[in-house]
């Protein structure tokens, strides 16, 4: 029974070739755009994550701080919701690591007495949401025994906000495209079904249940969806691979590293074929339901 439906659906795709081609190209064009949108939005999201990973806030403590006071600051950091991780570097540790970097520094720093170390103890923080960095920093600065809060380049934060906007726009574009395609496909299939309303009428007349009638059309929508996603998938896979290779895995600057193509492109392909199938089937079902009220 199912076999017959699949056979009939394939037959019908070729029998109504021009309309099928219209539906398929309609699905293809949208899926190409959706694919591009997914690729770029995922990459933008990836940039943001990378920046967030590298992003640290430094809390410099007062020079004459005691161990008890450090513990109090640590308690405060623990209470802050936006701080996911912190590391403590004592001024001795910092001096030590600095001395290891060059002999010139070593010569100077070795002459320091115990209390001559001009460096500060530092907490290095990782934030949960770096968009909140400004308020978090202000809060930290007000704490006792904190002399300075520094969080690297301010421009990074602006980048993140820009990426956020881009990502949101892309997601809206993707959703919009999907909705538009669903309508276009419903209409195209409606045309295809309009030319077959007699067939549907006769099917009902000879005792086909609604499900009997819908099934071949649903299968047809599924086939259209699969056919329609072939070209977009080829474009996504080959396009992304060659883009990745051409730009050497980064987009203009090293901190915008691209998502590694494997398995990323295959997941995107899977998403595209799923969208194609779902949209094809829903469009088909919507259209055929219209003729089942006889």
């Amino acid at each position: 029974m199912i076999g017959r439906d699949i056979r009939d659906a394939i037959k019908s795709v070729f029998r109504n070739f021009s309309l099928s081609m219209a539906s398929i190209s309609c699905i293809s064009i949208t899926l190409i755009l959706v694919g591009l949108a997914i690729l770029s939005s995922y990459n933008v999201d990836h940039f943001t994550k990378l920046i967030e990973q590298d992003f640290s806030v430094f809390v410099y403590l007062d020079k004459d701080i005691t161990d008890e006071e450090i513990a109090i600051v640590e308690e405060e950091l623990k209470k802050n919701n936006n701080i996911v991780q912190y590391d403590f570097d004592s001024k001795e540790e910092i001096a030590q690591s600095m001395m290891e970097t060059s002999d010139v520094l070593r010569n100077i720093m070795e002459k320091w007495e115990e209390d001559e170390n001009p460096l500060n103890d530092v907490f290095r923080l990782k934030l949960k949401d770096i968009r909140e960095v400004k308020t978090t920093a202000q809060k930290l600065e007000k704490m006792d025994n904190v002399s300075l809060v520094d969080y690297g380049e301010k421009i990074v934060n602006n980048f993140i906000i820009a990426f956020d906007v881009i990502e949101k726009i892309l997601i809206i574009v993707v959703l919009l495209f999907i909705v538009v395609t669903a309508f276009l496909i419903a209409n195209t299939i409606k045309l295809a079904i309009f030319s077959r309303r007699r067939e549907i009428e006769i099917m009902r007349l000879v005792g086909a249940s609604n499900f009997n009638i819908e099934l071949p059309f649903i299968v047809e929508g599924l086939i259209l969806g699969i056919f329609g996603s072939i070209i977009p998938i080829i474009i996504v896979i080959y396009g992304y691979f060659s883009f990745y290779i051409k730009y050497d895995g980064q987009f203009f600057s090293p901190f915008m590293r691209l998502v590694v193509p494997e398995p990323f492109v295959y997941i995107v392909s899977l998403i595209l074929v799923s969208i194609g199938i779902i949209v094809g089937m829903m469009g088909s079902l919507r259209a055929v339901r219209k003729y089942l009220k006889i």
Binding site: R198, E201, I202, M203, L205, G207
Partner: peptide, 20 residues
């Protein structure tokens, strides 16, 4: 109310095929 693209045999068999 026959289907023009099906043969006589197919038109008649049509009513049985839906029963599987």
């Amino acid at each position: 109310k026959l289907l023009p693209r099906l043969t006589v045999f197919e038109n008649v068999a049509f009513a049985l095929e839906i029963f599987g």
